[in-house]
Design a protein around this nucleic acid. Structure first.
Lengths: 140, 140
DNA sequence: GTTGTTGCAAATACTTTGCAACTAT
DNA sequence: ATAGTTGCAAAGTATTTGCAACAAC
């Protein structure tokens, strides 16, 4: 399978002192085209069925680099599962997970972000990253 | 090792249709006396060194019951580790984790709680539980 | 006595790692 | 040429499970 060299990926790899490889491109391509939050195994299997020869190990290794460089967001479901999503627009958001349907709703609230910063500051810290998930049920 | 029958534990177990056993009491006692957030293995080892014969399996099985019944709070560190703390006073709080020192600071902010509820409501949901962790660094 | 509970070891789920073969530079 | 990268399978980590012996009721 062919793929177009992503300039952003090239830059990130260079910055990290890593080489550009077809496998790393393939993993990024696969995540980039995700419409939903997906787990590592799913990404691996999809690559496999598209005749990309990328091992599970490489999928995990590449995801680490992408997460570290803000190209992918890691979402911890809190039950041992991790889902990933591309950060194309680099727009931050948190998640609301419906306990009845499993539906994941993304949300962003400026006031909430500010409040977090304020709380950390009050303790002498600044927020580097945060995890914020609301486990919800439909009203009525 | 001896232990005093905890009435609250007895009630919770009855409500769940479970029997009162010395092992369940021992696990709860061990967690209850925690000054810090601890993991399951730590709780298991501590029990062992105190001559309580409780298996790892029972530690995990009991923690599940305690968490479900709000006697213990589970704290997901987001890297596969889970820490537990007793909920004696049943006072809700979230966590701030210092990335430099590993120090865990507990915080509670009414405004933040309200804001969460409001956000969920706007989407037609009510918050059942939430995970909110700030990974921070000291200012300067 | 009956049914739930326990301990054990094996199984599971997810992720990481050692290493020899391979590939980008 | 050489140093980083890959795939594989094995190891690791945290937790769960099947089952026979056992304990609570």
């Amino acid at each position: 399978m062919s793929s177009i060299k992503s300039q952003h990926l090239v830059e990130v790899l260079r910055k990290e002192g890593l080489r550009y490889t077809s496998q790393r491109q393939a993993v990024w391509d696969e995540i980039k085209k995700s419409e939903e939050h997906r787990d590592a195994e799913d990404i691996y299997l999809q690559l496999k069925s598209n005749n990309h020869n990328v091992s599970r190990a490489t999928v995990y290794r590449t995801i680490d680099v992408l997460v570290k460089n803000h190209m992918v967001r890691k979402m911890d479901l809190g039950d041992g599962r991790n889902l990933f999503e591309p950060r194309i627009d680099d727009e931050h958001h948190d998640h609301m997970i419906c306990l009845d349907t499993g539906k994941i709703i993304e949300f962003f609230d400026e006031e909430l972000e500010d409040l977090q910063d304020k709380i950390a500051e009050k303790h002498g810290y600044k927020v580097v990253r945060h995890v914020h998930q609301l486990f919800v049920k439909p009203i009525k």
